[in-house]
């Protein structure tokens, strides 16, 4: 069980000539085990930087990131952190090290020095969880983008992490591949794994039970999707609302009265029917 505790974190990039860019400014939040969190924000808002801070790929310039009480800045325990917090990156092609699917899934456990019998068990389990067990002997480069990302998720799952971060993992996929990934992620969350989905697809963010909105390296909102989509925060962050919430807003201007934003089209329809009665 892992809780993430981010307190007062700032992060600056050096861009040469002694100049730095502050990507994140004094950020604090906590994530409990089992949460489904979406991190949204425009390009350059610091989302991806934040992801890399959460498992110690980057070390904060100021402040601390604690995973289960372990400081990510401590070099001796960094692998403890990375065991607990896995990241699925954006480009499906750039994450796999092995040519054959099952070998790639085994990479993480191999690195941890886990006995072979258990690696086999973990690989089977992880491939089944993402529905790729039938493709285990296939060549990685011959898979579709969505399948590659499923293998990447399996590779992270094989480490048996408490937290999985998706760093815009669906942005290079077609709608079908994206839906598949989202349903897998939902299943994993139901099994108790904390999910942090970094995305700029608002319909994906609607799946989460908590959304953090970033703008210029600062958190400008941290609440449930319903509240966030009903407020003006999204406009402020330069983001588009998901379609049901957009329609609800338009209807509000024309005499309807939505108290919270509907997340799905079904919810929207039901609400419209009720209000028309």
């Amino acid at each position: 069980m892992s809780t993430l505790k981010i307190s007062g974190v700032s992060y600056s990039y050096s861009i040469g000539d002694g100049k730095t860019i502050r990507a994140l400014k004094n950020i604090s939040f906590e994530v409990e085990q089992g949460e489904y969190l979406a991190l949204v924000g425009m390009n350059g808002s610091g989302k991806s930087t934040l992801a890399k801070l959460l498992n110690g790929l980057y070390i904060p310039s100021k402040g601390t990131v604690l995973v289960d009480g372990i400081d990510t800045a401590n070099d001796d325990t960094i692998f403890e952190v990375r065991k607990k917090v896995g990241i699925v990156f954006q480009n499906p092609d750039n994450q796999a090290v092995a040519t054959i699917v099952e070998d790639d899934v085994a990479f993480g456990p191999e690195n941890l020095g886990i006995p072979r019998e258990e690696i086999v068990e973990r690989v089977n389990e992880a491939l089944e969880a993402v529905g790729m067990d039938k493709h285990r002997e296939r060549t990685f480069s011959k898979l579709s983008g969505g399948q590659k990302q499923r293998v990447a998720i399996a590779g992270v799952l094989a480490m048996r992490p408490d937290v999985i971060i998706l760093d815009e993992s669906t942005s290079m996929l077609d709608p079908k591949g994206r839906r598949k990934i989202m349903s897998i992620v939902k299943k994993l969350n139901e099994a108790g794994i904390t999910i942090i989905n970094i995305t700029h697809h608002m319909d994906e963010a609607a799946h989460a039970n908590r959304i953090i909105v970033l703008k210029n390296g600062s958190i400008i909102a941290d609440s449930t999707p319903k509240e966030i989509f009903a407020s003006k925060v999204m406009d402020e962050a330069g983001l588009k609302l998901p379609l049901p919430a957009q329609i609800a807003n338009q209807l509000n201007e024309n005499g309807f009265n939505f108290e919270s934003a509907p997340l799905t089209l079904n919810e929207l329809m039901e609400e419209i029917c009720q209000q028309l009665k």
């Binding site: 990375r82 090290v97 993480g108 992270v156």
Partner: peptide, 10 residues
């Protein structure tokens, strides 16, 4: 990117 992914996987 691969280096980040490999580091993430210990």
């Amino acid at each position: 990117e691969l280096a980040f992914a490999m580091d993430s996987r210990c």
